[in-house]
């Protein structure tokens, strides 16, 4: 009963020596392996659509409060250091690139390179979170720049800064959660890829996670200017 990545088919199949990806068989309800791959891809794209809508809710909230309290929002983004945001943008862009490379490697059966690229992707994701927590969340929270009722910053210059921080923490927090989930998925990919599960004829899971990772990146590309650059 395969979805994207069948465990069951690992054991079955012919010549035990052949790598896992060669032995892969589509789920029994598929006519061909290509159909299964296409289906998985449509599925992922639909899932990405839901992600976009999820974040668009947050973007709408941002827009509404920008209209309601323009000073608070611009004062708020003034507190953010664009250099951290920018570094994180670069980090994510690199990771997106290595993710794409890893898929390419698998398609060409360059398994060693695939491992390396996946690992770089994972490290970049971790780096992103590290920058976020060590240089941004940590100090800000400590200074009292917190959302809503938790707000406790003595030098606030406008009246609704706590709303800004709510938007900031909610949108970057939901995004960071996605990065965290992405790290889990990439770790799983590394594990499976080391076992030889993906190769030129079967890389559905790689493709899926790859697309997910690009959308996480893309969301950040929108968040970065909105939160850090537009005052």
């Amino acid at each position: 009963m395969a979805t994207f990545d069948s465990q069951a088919s690992d054991v079955a199949g012919d010549g035990a020596k052949a790598p896992l990806w060669k032995r892969y068989k589509a789920g029994h309800h598929w006519r061909t392996q290509d159909d299964e791959f296409d289906a998985a891809k449509i599925g992922i794209w639909l899932f990405l659509a839901t992600e976009v809508l999820l974040f668009s809710g947050l973007f709408c909230a941002y827009a509404v409060f920008r209209m309601l309290y323009p000073e608070a929002i611009s004062a708020g983004s003034g507190y953010l250091d664009w250099r951290f945001g920018f570094s994180n943008t670069v980090v994510l862009l690199i990771s997106s690139f290595t993710m794409a490379m890893a898929i390419r490697d698998v398609q060409l059966n360059r398994q060693r390179w695939a491992t390396i690229n996946l690992s770089i992707t994972w490290v970049c994701a971790a780096l992103f979170l590290a920058i976020k927590f060590i240089f941004e969340y940590g100090p800000k929270w400590a200074e009292g720049k917190r959302p809503g009722n938790l707000f406790d910053y003595a030098y606030a210059s406008t009246s609704h800064e706590h709303v800004w921080w709510s938007i900031y923490y909610m949108s970057t927090g939901v995004h960071a959660t996605h990065v965290l989930i992405g790290m889990g998925l990439i770790a799983w990919l590394i594990y499976r890829q080391r076992k030889g599960a993906y190769g030129p004829t079967h890389f559905t899971m790689m493709e899926g996670v790859g697309l997910y990772w690009h959308i996480v990146d893309l969301v950040w590309i929108f968040l970065f200017p909105l939160l850090y650059l537009v005052h």
Partner: peptide, 16 residues
């Protein structure tokens, strides 16, 4: 946590 997005008491917008 009363983040104040919807709560008018904290400047939020209930109609949102």
């Amino acid at each position: 946590f009363q983040i104040g997005i919807f709560d008018p008491g904290l400047g939020g917008d209930p109609v949102l």
